[in-house]
Amino acid sequence: MTPRVAHLVAAFFASLTAASGAAAQGAAPLAPLAPSRTYMALVASESVDRVAVIEFGPQGAKVVRQHDVGVMLADPDGPHGLAVAPDGAHYYVSTAHGTPYGVLWKFDARTNAYAGQVMLGNFPATAQVTPDGRLVVVVNFNLHGDMVASDVSVVRTDSLQEIARITTCAMPHGSRVNSRGTRHYSVCMMDEQLVEIDLDGLQVSRHFLLTKGMERGMEGAPPARGAADAAHAGHDMSGHGLAQPAAGSTTCSPTWAQPSADDRTVWVACNGTSDLVEIDVASWTMRRRVPAGNGVYNLAATRDGTKLVATNKRGQSVGIIDAKTGATLATLPTQRRVVHGVVITPDDRYAFVTVEGVGSEPGTVEIIDLAALKTVARVEVGQQAGGIDLLPLR
């Protein structure tokens, strides 16, 4: 055996040993592969009143079409929330900057044709369609005036009739419905609360105090708080989740609520303390706090219940967290600043993340392979990319 052959044989057996060791530890992520199917995402860009349709498949990622949303020519309408119906036939966009109120728009998902609209409250933001496709639930974020209690709109998808406007708390955000469509969860960025709405009774059923060291679940709606209370609570009063909190602050400043796939728990992103609170739904008590990235903002959970994906607004990164152990599996930096929304493909393979950008920078959608734990594609869209959702797989 020549020295060169001996070297190659040794290298081969060394690679086998390394691979078997990694497999035994279960720590080696898979190498990223080009997708064998095509995924379609819809992205709202707030500064340019535009929705882009992104295609990600074997040939990579690209914008395949886009269209404008809104009617105000001199000032952006501000498309913020975006929600696709479960059957993929329609999607809904909330525009936040209406005069005096915002609007929920309905579009045909195949043609982008206008299909109707309804006026909601001040600054309608995060939106989601219930699993049965009957309702759209939209939080009225209300950035205007005093930090008083705002509300959540419930809209029928067929008639676009607002059937309820449920008062919750100051600056509701992070709106998500559980998998059965029976409960809606949102957080109050200025009131330290998680709020649960009974969608059958169309009323607040419970709330949960999220301040570190004071965590407690309670029945009924949260108590009303005035602007002075919020102003002295250490919150980011801009409502954008970018302000660095004071050292040692216990203020959660919650920005997102994410039910687990089995509806047993709700995860809350505490933007102020840069951690996650896991709440047991049955007992309405806190299970644990889990460290997260700097300024954790939005969350998405895989359908198999194994991972959480968190956008870190101040940290310019995305965290991938083991839902069982709470360990951070990877922290992936983003190309641009102000990381915003995240959705996960129905097969749990990829996460699509929106990044707003700063100033004249375009918005970006970054696509993460959740098996390889790597960013595998980026697409530029309109400025201030925020709301995002996926069309069903075909």
Rank of each mutant, 00 (worst) to 15 (best):
M1I: 06
M1D: 12
P3N: 10
R4F: 12
H7K: 11
F13S: 07
S15V: 13
T17K: 14
T17A: 15
G21L: 15
G21W: 15
A22N: 14
A27F: 12
A27S: 15
L30T: 15
A34M: 14
R37G: 10
A41I: 03
V43Q: 10
S47W: 07
V48P: 01
D49S: 08
D49C: 08
D49T: 06
V51E: 10
G60P: 00
G60K: 03
A61K: 01
H67P: 00
G78Q: 04
A85K: 03
A85M: 05
H90N: 06
Y92N: 12
S94T: 15
T95C: 08
A96P: 00
T99C: 09
G102E: 02
L104F: 07
N112E: 11
A115K: 09
Q117F: 02
M119N: 10
A127I: 04
V129W: 03
V129T: 09
V129L: 02
T130G: 03
P131H: 01
S150V: 05
D158S: 09
D158A: 12
E162R: 14
R165I: 02
M171S: 11
H173C: 06
G174Y: 01
V177G: 10
S179F: 03
R180A: 15
G181W: 07
H184Y: 15
S186Q: 15
V187F: 03
M190F: 08
D191I: 00
E192I: 00
E192Q: 14
E192V: 01
E196A: 13
I197R: 12
I197W: 09
G201Y: 01
G201C: 00
L202R: 10
Q203D: 06
R206T: 06
F208W: 11
F208M: 12
T211C: 10
D229Y: 11
A231R: 14
H232F: 11
H235T: 03
D236T: 06
M237C: 02
S238N: 11
S238A: 13
H240V: 12
P245H: 04
A247W: 04
W256L: 02
A261I: 01
N271W: 02
V277N: 13
V281Q: 09
V281M: 07
S283F: 04
S283I: 02
R287D: 04
G295F: 08
N298Q: 14
L299E: 04
A301D: 02
T302W: 10
R303M: 06
K307G: 06
L308T: 07
T311R: 04
V318Q: 09
V318N: 07
G326Y: 06
A327N: 09
L329F: 05
P333A: 00
P333I: 01
Q335Y: 10
V338Y: 13
V339H: 11
T345V: 05
P346Y: 07
D348E: 12
D348P: 02
F352K: 01
T354W: 02
V355D: 08
E356D: 13
I368W: 13
I368R: 03
L370H: 06
A372F: 13
K374R: 15
K374M: 13
Q383C: 07
Q383V: 05
I388L: 11
L390S: 05
L393T: 15
